[in-house]
Write a protein that binds this DNA or RNA. Sequence first.
DNA 1: CGTTATATGGAGAACGTTCTACATTATCCG
DNA 2: CGGATAATGTAGAACGTTCTCCATATAACG
Lengths: 352, 352
Amino acid sequence: MSIEEKKRLQRNDRVTIRTVATHAGVSVAAVSKVMRNAYGVSEALRAKVTDAIEVLGYRPSRAARGLRGRSFTIGVLLIDIRNPFLPEVIAGVNGVLAPSHYQAMIGVSDARVQLETSLIESMIDYKMDGLILVAPRLPSDIIAKFAAQIPIVAVGYHDAGATAFDTVNADDQRGAEIAVEALLACGYRDIEMLSLGEREGHQVSVVRQREIGFRRAIQRGGLGSSAPITKIPIAPPKREETMRKFLSRKNRPRAVFCWSDLDAVTLLSLAMEMGVRVPEDLAVVGYDNSSTAALGLVNLASIDQSGRELGQVATRTLISRIEGRTGAEHIFQMPSLVSRNSLSRSGMAPVT
Amino acid sequence: MSIEEKKRLQRNDRVTIRTVATHAGVSVAAVSKVMRNAYGVSEALRAKVTDAIEVLGYRPSRAARGLRGRSFTIGVLLIDIRNPFLPEVIAGVNGVLAPSHYQAMIGVSDARVQLETSLIESMIDYKMDGLILVAPRLPSDIIAKFAAQIPIVAVGYHDAGATAFDTVNADDQRGAEIAVEALLACGYRDIEMLSLGEREGHQVSVVRQREIGFRRAIQRGGLGSSAPITKIPIAPPKREETMRKFLSRKNRPRAVFCWSDLDAVTLLSLAMEMGVRVPEDLAVVGYDNSSTAALGLVNLASIDQSGRELGQVATRTLISRIEGRTGAEHIFQMPSLVSRNSLSRSGMAPVT
DNA sequence: CGTTATATGGAGAACGTTCTACATTATCCG
DNA sequence: CGGATAATGTAGAACGTTCTCCATATAACG
């Protein structure tokens, strides 16, 4: 009683594993064993220790844990929180983690590859137990190099050939196909895709996958081999300009599939401004089923890839890898169409 | 040359401070001194060490740093990433931190007070150097208790009496006043506020501040002492129901000030659905100037509180406290009106 | 030239865990 | 009852830093 009290005063009152040990009258190692519920702990010992922990309000230092063994933290890396799709992923991750003893720490690398690497390195230096990379910009071999040091699951990164890390994806090719099929079913024949500029998405990004799916669906639909794709730059002034040009084009298509709600919603706004009626003059299908798309004012048909589920699955996959699985897993999730007015006035895709 | 190589092989090839020391032919302490650029380092020594660091690609372990001293990490706590205002704050934080040697780690506590405390504790256990709490739900004395263990800046938390921690806020009272003044200037006399349900916001939350500002402005405008406020519950089914009821009320006001764009945008959607014309039948001013408000389809007038600036200021304040300032600072930022169609057809607030 | 001040580098003890190797008991079995 | 086996608890060495003394070398000064 007096020994640990003396220590607590002397050491600016932080409760350490040692405080607990002396309070419970056992060794430090014993407390550690109980904490990690390791083998070789009697009920009596466990009771004494848990009591002491309770009484003292002991919390193990993550820093010290990280130094020696696991830190029970998993890192999540986002490239851009502005995309309304990401909060869903986080919610999924947190949902799975909540009942466990793991916790998530999020790093945001505002689209700068430089910062992205340095954040991953930081997380490794923290001895985090695993990493979930959401739509990383990094090339596969770099990610593989990191994966040698820490378990990694990539979300929104189509690299089914990766052996060093797992991937969890919505089937973006199929998602694009579904969008085109819905437009075809509504009778539209003149369909174009709005995609992201070359510089922004690498070969394994979701955007390129959607392009592949778009082309295939167009071809299958018997609309010839030319599947026109207009690329939108990401920089604000050029971005709107490109969309305006698209909307005022003489040979503007009858329907458009847009790679993301982010751009689709802006397109709808500009269309209204320019007097292009949706869907009478132009039908639009977006991607992500963001909350904005669901607004009555916007009413944008969109492909739903449940971000929440993606987050959940990614987390489970990561934990299984942390706990010893070797050999990469590549998981796909099926997206679905949410039909709304921008597709057809009734808000219903006609049954074929 | 051979010594450190042997070590690197033997220790699974992590470059530690020791590796650097032997490579540079100096002591471990010397390397540490250079890293922290502490006093008592000659140019020659510094050169040798930085060279070795460069060659070996050494990165200090954050875990070990945290155990002993500073971890050069600051924690950011968010209650809900869904609010489009928060990405801006993050961007501000990251912007200020980028050129420094600090890094931000974000924790998301999905509106559960339980998780909020446990995340703060985790961040303390990580020996983070400081915390930025964004719109925390916790009572002031609890935050003060934490602030005894770690420097804390609260954003969106109106507690100018706090002595243990700093606060950075937009002047939410003034923001509400500006909104009401704009409505008055447009000639509206029958003004109501849509606010957040009692349970969601405590006394020092931004919502309550906006209510105070609303009441004062109404009174100053000579509209009597009754300033009607309708509270919207946060749960999805009740939420829309309450708004619908509001819109179909016989004595529906002529204009409404809404505590957040999040709800204002939904209100606009429902209004359209129910045939209530905006602004002819009902003028609306929101709060946050979110990207959705700016959409042509939505065109919602809104109060802008630069989240980015809030994040920047909060970060600078935190760093100054980390570096030794004592005595609390309470900083205010002035919000401004962004006028759009939901206020008056021209999108301009009439000059008074 | 002796004394004191100053600048520079190093030894080594923390920090709070984990975890291996070992010591001690308890249990079992013929 | 003797010996083997299993169960339980403990010592103590890591982990990779920081940081407080110390030791030494150099400069300054009377």
